[in-house]
Structures are given as structure tokens and as C-alpha cells.
Write a protein that binds this DNA or RNA. Structure first.
Length: 116
DNA sequence: TGATTGACCAACT
DNA sequence: CAGTTGGCCAATC
């Protein structure tokens, strides 16, 4: 039987697969799950991620603007920023610099190289 | 059981 | 460019 949180598992699976030094957006994950319009569910799922026993790099998930919308949910004000900076990601004004450069597409996790 | 909220996104005005 | 509206799904009150 499926748990009542089957979609949460899918989200966690993807977030856990986010490589170091990369970030993604709620909408990208939602779209990958076929719930593009339900990006809020991903955000809500992330709010529960810290309750999960697995280590979810939720700091690598931001909104489509690269803004650290959920920084307050890390138990601090600049915790999320620091975590991203530790991975080599430049963060300024609660926003990721060169967001598109660090953006990681969940659908492209199979292709290590992204031809550009 | 209905109404409200939520770490969102896109379109419209 | 900024504010509003619609949409989606799940949890909480």
C-alpha cells in the first residue's frame, strides 16, 4: 500500500539527487513530476522535508527567480544563504547570482554534460 | 465537511 | 513594472 505521502517521496528523491553546487526550482521539480501547476505542493513538501529522516538539501531548492523564499524555514535568517555559499554559489540580497548557471534540471540528471 | 493556507508559477490588467 | 487572479494538491482548523 502506498503511503499517504507518495508524492513527497518523489520530491525527496529528486532533491536528494541535486548535485553539489547546483540548485533547482520548485516548478522544475513539479514539472518533472507532471504537476507543473502544483509547484506549491513541492514547496509544501519541502516544508516537511526537514521533518523527514533523510537529509534533504532543501537549501538547493529555490523559486524560479533564484530567490531564497524559504530561508526562514531553516531555523535562521541567513542559514540558507550560508549553505549555498559554502557550495560555491554566490548569494546576494537573498538571491542567487547567475542562477541559470547553477540551475540543475531534474530531467537532465542523466546527462552529466550539458551541451551549450 | 467547508474554508483557509502554503518554501509557487503563469497569465492578465 | 507592479498588482491581481486563476490554478493545482495536500494539510490544518
Amino acid at each position: 500500500m502506498k503511503n499517504n505521502t507518495d508524492f513527497l517521496d518523489k520530491v525527496y528523491e529528486i532533491v536528494e539527487q541535486i548535485p553539489y553546487g547546483r540548485v533547482t526550482s520548485y516548478g522544475a521539480i513539479a514539472r518533472h513530476l507532471g504537476m507543473a501547476k502544483s509547484a506549491r505542493l513541492v514547496g509544501w513538501a519541502m516544508s516537511q522535508s526537514f521533518l523527514s529522516q533523510r537529509e534533504i538539501p532543501a537549501h538547493r531548492v529555490v523559486n524560479r527567480h533564484g530567490l531564497l523564499t524559504g530561508k526562514h524555514h531553516f531555523g535562521g535568517s541567513t542559514v540558507m544563504e550560508n549553505l549555498l555559499r559554502q557550495e560555491g554559489i554566490a548569494v546576494e540580497n537573498d538571491k542567487i547570482i547567475n542562477f541559470a548557471k547553477y540551475f540543475w534540471d531534474p530531467s537532465g540528471h542523466l546527462s552529466t554534460n550539458s551541451k551549450h
